[in-house]
Computed example of a mutant assay.
Amino acid sequence: MQLTFHGHACVSLSLPDGGTLVIDPGTFSDTAAALTGAAAVLVTHDHFDHVDVPAVAELLTATPGVEVWASGPGAAALRDGGAPANQVHEVTAGQVLDIAGARVTVGGGDHAVIHPEVPRAVNVTYLIELGGRSLYHPGDSYDAPAGLPDDGLDVLLVPVSGPWTRLAEAMDFARSVPAGAVVPIHDAPLSEIGHTLTGRWLDTARLGGKYTYSRLTAGEVLAV
């Protein structure tokens, strides 16, 4: 599995038949780079930092073979934004999909709580199994993956910054889900000092376990 980080919450996975599977290409990410060569797109929820609606709609219009799977509100936002309806599919927790040769298990349900008076968005999660490797993208949640492989994950993406996050919850999430590599995401609000502090707290030496903490910069590739 080859994972490319495109900034904030967006990653892509190289597919065996060419092209990439892109997850959460939002406006805080390098969306243009992420969508170049995309064969399929997954969207966890409809917040703008997870789906750049104009960019994704433009991609779908220009490339009829590309399809998107998204939460209900995410799918509606894309259709309302001009995306061809037949290329946009709504997903719900419990579905298991075959997308471009990848097995995708949909989980989750609700966005993490930002504030009791702020309505919670619909947030789905994606467990992706591809080429004998596995990756989990939780969107804006710390929901554990359903149907975890017997030997654990290869890559766990952990949100580390935002109005809904707490570092303690990120640490608990990293400790509770067995994975070979932990990659921080949802990091656009962090300064370099913030990244350094977060890395120290999430490092294996402090938390125990066997994972490798791998912070990636935009455009950087992790081979798993």
Rank of each mutant, 00 (worst) to 15 (best):
H6A: 11
A218Y: 02
S161V: 01
G72C: 05
R175T: 12
A34F: 10
V66F: 03
T4E: 14
L35G: 01
V22L: 07
L148N: 09
Q2N: 06
R200H: 04
V56D: 04
V155H: 03
G81T: 10
L42S: 03
D151G: 03
E117V: 11
A32R: 14
T63K: 04
T31E: 07
E220F: 09
H195N: 06
T44C: 14
S71D: 08
L190V: 11
G109S: 04
V51K: 00
S29R: 00
V183C: 02
S29Q: 06
A76Q: 14
A170Y: 06
L15M: 01
S191D: 05
P73S: 15
T31N: 05
G72V: 15
A102R: 00
T36E: 15
A146V: 08
E192Q: 13
A170P: 09
A38T: 03
L130P: 01
G74A: 07
A62N: 06
D52P: 01
N123A: 07
P73F: 09
G219V: 14
P84E: 14
V124E: 11
T36K: 15
E220P: 10
H6Y: 12
A168K: 02
L197S: 03
R206M: 15
D80C: 08
G101K: 03
H115C: 12
T198A: 13
A121Y: 03
S161L: 02
T20L: 14
V51F: 06
D203F: 02
R103H: 08
R215V: 04
P25D: 08
G18D: 08
G162M: 05
V22M: 05
L197R: 09
R79S: 13
D24C: 13
A102M: 06
R175L: 14
A181I: 09
H8N: 11
L167C: 03
Q95H: 07
P64K: 12
S29V: 06
P138F: 08
A83F: 03
I23Q: 04
P54H: 08
Y126C: 11
A102S: 10
S161M: 04
G194D: 09
V104C: 10
S161A: 13
G152N: 09
